[in-house]
Design a protein around this nucleic acid. Structure first.
Lengths: 222, 222
DNA sequence: GCCCGTCTGTGACTTAGTCACGAAGCCGTG
DNA sequence: CACGGCTTCGTGACTAAGTCACAGACGGGC
């Protein structure tokens, strides 16, 4: 049954596994499909299985007591979502939540099978460790940004990355503020300033990028 | 030789290892002693071995291009310093550095032996994973603080935690600013305000805590 | 059309960070 | 002890960011 083993081919580190181990992993893992807007993990809700994302994007964000939010990072195809296991291992309960931004196809590996794969497969370990390491790098990047970077620069960066080449983004100012961990009014004023300079055009729920080069300059300034 | 295996007893997860594995780990790991102020890892300097801290404290901080700093977390006895391995695994080079704050006794495990222990020992995996998980929790805590908390509250928290029960802290305002990722002048003004209220007393290179209860209230406010 | 919920704009104010100083404390040397 | 030199600390003026309390503007459903 080549169809059953197909997902494993997406992970070069796992394709190198002995056929037996692969079969066992495939047998015990379930391919799941999550609709847009699904909460994968959240404070208080403990994770039951380890997730490997095949397709789609999961947004991981932190919510403060005061209701403000900040996006920490996004997990996309081919990556491991380690926050679920991290929550289990560090007794401290922390206030991150993971939400699917698109429809997401993923592999759910139950705790026991996860432990076994970790024990038996160097490739699996590599996937998990590199997942952890990338998230640590992401988090350090967030710290660096919120602690030391100017908001206009961060906003320009985020607009460009959210656009991903497109000319326009469908997003509210509130959502942009949550991306940056800032306040709506502040982001609104920053956007107004960019519009005044003719670099973007604003309308309800949308930002159109006009002068991409100028935004890029701002995003990489200093 | 009971002396040779002594350090392993500090890690309950490793004490459970089969005697053979323990002997091998002990044989390949080196106990090192690092004087105060040693830079364990830094940007550009790649780590050669995995570290388990036995005694002492390692401060991990991030330095921005503009020269500002922020303390991310501290690693103390019984914990794994995962940043060295994290740097290797996530290709992104990031700007954290680890510095010993006291004399530090640690176990250095070379890369190859690290991989083997990871493969062979569930206990060793547990140590490493819980190290990663705790650091992720620490980093998320830093993000939460810098993004959402008021500086006076954070300063009070830090003063109390640095004091650790003592009545006085030997630290410059510049160092306090680096703890919080803020600027010296700002921290200076905040300290002056605390002094005006009679909660602390300031002198060159020292902060004495007078009204610990008031500081604790501030630290836990909201 | 009109209503209602969401989204956006604004002013006044507080908090935090930046810049450019200068003054004070500490310590060795002559 | 007086004199530099270095580090630490204090200050004012300014800019950047966050908060609060609104008011207006848009858009879909009835």
């Amino acid at each position: 049954m080549p169809e059953q083993t197909s997902w494993i081919e997406r992970f070069p580190d796992l394709a190198a596994l002995p056929a037996d181990d692969r079969r066992q992993l495939v047998a015990r893992a379930a391919e799941v499909s999550l609709p847009l807007g699904t909460t994968i993990f959240a404070p208080g809700k403990d994770a039951e299985s380890f997730l490997l994302v095949l397709e789609g994007v999961v947004r991981v964000q932190q919510v403060s007591v005061s209701g403000r939010e900040i996006v920490l990072y996004r997990v996309s195809g081919g990556e491991a979502c380690i926050m679920t296991t991290a929550c289990l291992l560090s007794s401290e309960p922390y206030s991150a939540e993971g939400i699917t931004e698109t429809e997401v196809k993923a592999i759910a590996i139950p705790r026991a099978a996860f432990e076994e794969a970790l024990a038996g497969s160097p490739g699996f370990r590599r996937i998990v460790f590199s997942g952890y390491s990338h998230r640590i790098a992401d988090l350090m990047h967030v710290v660096e940004e919120v602690a030391f970077q100017r908001l206009d620069k961060r906003l320009a960066q985020r607009l460009l990355s959210l656009a991903g080449g497109a000319a326009s983004i469908r997003v509210t100012q509130q959502e942009l503020a949550a991306e940056l961990g800032s306040a709506r009014e502040v982001v609104g004023r920053q956007l107004k300033e960019l519009e005044r300079r003719g670099w973007v055009a604003l309308s309800r729920g949308e930002v159109r990028l006009i002068e991409v080069e100028a935004l890029r300059d701002l995003a990489t300034s200093e």
